[in-house]
Each structure stands twice: as C-alpha cells, then as structure tokens.
C-alpha cells in the first residue's frame, strides 16, 4: 500500500452564503501518480484544488467539515505558504500570478519568503529556470517572454521550493494545441525526473492520455469515480453526461467493447488503437 499524497476524509465545503460546493468527498491521491481531475464545468474542480492547497477554507472562509491531509498532515491550522512547500498549486490565469518584474525575481520570490540563504536562492532559481527550458533568463523582463514562456516561468516558481506534489488547474486553457502538448511533455519529464505526484485539471484529455495513471471524476460537487485510470474511465463512460469528457480514443474503445462484447487494450496513443483495431476487425479498408 503506497502512501497518499493528498487525502480527503468526509470533506464538505460551502462558500459563504452559498450551497454546498463539495459534498462527502472521500478519496486519496496515490503518491507518485499522474492524476487527472475530470468533470463538467461547475462541478467543483477548482474548489477541490484550492482545498488541497489549504486556501479553502483558510482564505475564503465559508462552512466546512471533514479533513484534508497533504502527505499525511492535516492542512487545518497551517499557513497556506507552508503547505505550498509540499504541495505547489498553479491556478488558472497564469498571467495574474506572476508578481515580479523579472524572471529571476519571480522564481526567487517564494524562496526568499521562506528564508533560504541568498546563495541557495540563486542556485535553485538557476536550476528551476533550466528545468522549464528557460535557462539563463533570470534578467528577462515579463514583457520579453511569450505567453507560453510566462506560464513555464510560473511553473518554475512553483517548482523552485521543490514540492513533492504539484497541482495544476487547467494549465493550458488559454494555449493553442501545440503549446498545450509541449507543456504537458515538459510536465511529464519533470514528473519522471523528480518522482513527483502530479494532479491536473484538464478538460481535453487527449493532451494527457499518454501520461495518466489515475483519474478522479467529479460531478455536482461529488466524487463519481476515483482510482486507476482504466476503472475510472469505465465508470465515467457509463454516465451519459460524463462520457463525452473522455478522450475520443477511449470513447471508441469503450463503445466497441460494449457493442461487441470484446476486450481491448489500454490505448495511450492512436498508433496502438489502429494496430489493435486492424487486428480485431480484419484488414478493413485495405
């Protein structure tokens, strides 16, 4: 039994003067997993991410019950920035999260706040920028960086404190497909390199299909499925409203399995799908 990176126990939450946004949340995220958080708009995905980082309830107030543990420690009563040392959070709208005038200052900001000695700050900043593919850009001004570069800069600033878990809320929603693919490639590389736990909210699963190990499906503030990707996908497919959120490839896979009563492989890319389908359905079209 592996340790849990994040664990929710009987968690309920409502924003001030509002109905319950999260209901009876019980699940754990496996340490070392690449977990995707899936659900229709307004299901509470962002709220769940904020709860992992301790922003909820600390920052927003509101009513809550139950507990959230990050790497075995309850987030209750702990400072948001201390939790951030273990669990880094990247919110949507990356532009507004960059607070400094130059790339180097941005990355060293939280390190300085946590009292790292200046030499280590410089070293970690250099390393973090290198990791996200912006080596030596310490003195670049914000407006000298493209949108995609700014986002990677934000990633570097989250990585610089070396959290063991990193949570990303719709990191590519404002990017073109090319940029999205390359950001996820980078994320996966870092995930492997540092053995981190990655949790990501994404509504286009095509981008992350090759990397997903686990999936959590959220609907109307409740957990519909949580666990390994294959099982969670099957559960989501059974629901008409959630089905369309799955990657197109997996919709084909699960549809064919259901119609034909066969078992197909756990496809991670289109090549795998084509070769298995050719095998199963004869040499159609050739």
């Amino acid at each position: 039994m592996k340790n849990k990176a994040v664990e929710f126990k009987n968690f309920y939450y409502a924003y001030n003067g509002d109905e319950l946004a999260l209901k009876n949340i019980n699940f754990g995220i496996r340490e070392g997993s690449f977990t995707v958080l899936l659900g229709p708009s307004g299901a509470g995905k962002t709220t769940l991410c904020k709860a992992m980082a301790g922003i909820i309830p600390y920052y927003y107030g509101g009513r809550y019950a139950g507990s959230v543990e990050v790497l075995g420690e309850d987030t209750k009563g702990r400072r948001v920035s201390d939790i951030a040392m273990k669990l880094g959070l990247m919110l949507e709208d990356y532009e507004s999260q960059l607070v400094s005038l130059t790339a180097g200052e941005e990355v060293s900001f939280s390190l300085l706040n946590h009292g790292f000695p200046p030499e280590e700050v410089a070293e970690r900043t250099r390393k973090a920028l290198e990791d996200v593919g912006l080596p030596g850009r310490e003195n670049y001004q914000m407006d000298e960086l493209s949108g995609g570069q700014r986002q990677r800069l934000l990633l570097a600033s989250v990585l610089a404190v070396r959290p063991r878990v990193i949570v990303l809320d719709e990191p590519v929603s404002a990017m073109d497909p090319e940029g999205a693919v390359s950001l996820y490639k980078l994320l996966y590389k870092l995930y492997q390199k540092y053995g981190m736990t990655v949790v990501v909210v994404e509504h286009n699963l095509d981008f992350v299909l090759p990397y997903i190990t686990d999936m959590i499906v959220l609907q109307d503030g409740q957990i519909k499925a949580a666990g390994c990707f294959e099982e969670a996908a099957e559960k989501a497919y059974a629901d008409r409203e959630l089905r369309h959120l799955l990657p197109a490839l997996w919709q084909v896979r699960l549809e064919l399995e259901q119609r034909e009563g066969i078992r197909l492989g756990s496809w991670r890319n289109i090549g795998e799908a084509i070769s298995e389908l050719k095998e199963k359905f004869g040499r159609v079209g050739l």
Binding site: I55, R79, D82, A84, Q97, S110, N113, S157
Partner: peptide
C-alpha cells in the same frame, strides 16, 4: 488571483 498567489508564495 494575485492575492492568492502572494499567499501561496508566502509574501
């Protein structure tokens, strides 16, 4: 968002 970000970074 900026305020949240500052909170997360321990300003």
């Amino acid at each position: 968002t900026l305020a949240l970000s500052m909170e997360l970074k321990g300003f």
